[in-house]
Write a protein that binds this DNA or RNA. Sequence first.
DNA 1: CGGGACTCCTGAGGGC
DNA 2: TGCCCTCAGGAGTCCC
Length: 286
Amino acid sequence: MPELPEVEITKRSLSRRILHKKVKNVTILNPKLRYNLNTQNFSSLKNKVIKKIIRRSKYLLIYFHDENILLVHLGMTGRFYFVKKGQSKIDTSFYAKREIITKHDHLKFSFDNFDLIYNDIRKFGFIKKISTKNLDNVKHLNKLGPEPLKKDFNFKYFKKRVKYSSSPIKNLLMNQSVVSGLGNIYVNEALFRSNISPQRKVRLLKDLEIKKLINSIKNVLKMAIKAGGSTIKNYHNSEGKTGSYQANFKVYDRDGEICKRASCNGKIMRKISSGRSSFFCPRCQT
DNA sequence: CGGGACTCCTGAGGGC
DNA sequence: TGCCCTCAGGAGTCCC
């Protein structure tokens, strides 16, 4: 569940449960992830207390009371879930399917009364132990552009950063060094809300359009966070709940359906560019 | 610089 | 029922 809103929801959900708690044990259940878990010395986390959890772009940083930090990326299908101690069968509808889910468990953090499991079907995610000492040199983090919800992502920055670019606007927004945390869903949704075609060259955007786009990005992200993120194919957050923002999708995965903009009546199209699906209304996005 | 093709991996869904 | 194909919220590398 991996764009900014979903990672933010994961952060909040984790914070509620594990902040200021002591990790009793870390168990590798399946080392195979983007980076092999066996290369990490997780035993140094034993009996350490979690100090804070932050989100940067689509990454989670779990700080411990010493210099240790866990850097987490959920990839496409990474997720956390909790299991109460001694609980073999879990009773909610989601957990009823536990035998399927368990299959892709990778890492277990044991706390006093519960376990926290990292599960990842496609194994594109990773968990890496880093240190406060070399935080500035972490390659995943040091080329990231500004956070889209923060003030430094604004018209002035955008103009300066991409002014002369002849790239399609969609590619620029997907580029994490331009703005960090957006992915395929929210880029498509924000472009629709701004009436801008995904293929439009950035240097041809009018100032007013850039301003509208920046507002759309901020708004769509804020609304998605409020809705608990988007849930596709029954993915869920660590509370076992699902987000609901997918009900508000205007273009994403609506290929062939009618445009939701009042009195438009256009047909949503899907087009592959840079290997990803773009969804847009050719009638009201130009 | 930028873009396309390909890579990692598993599962869902459509067509036959 | 199975088989084959395409596609999926990410992102890195290689090549032109």
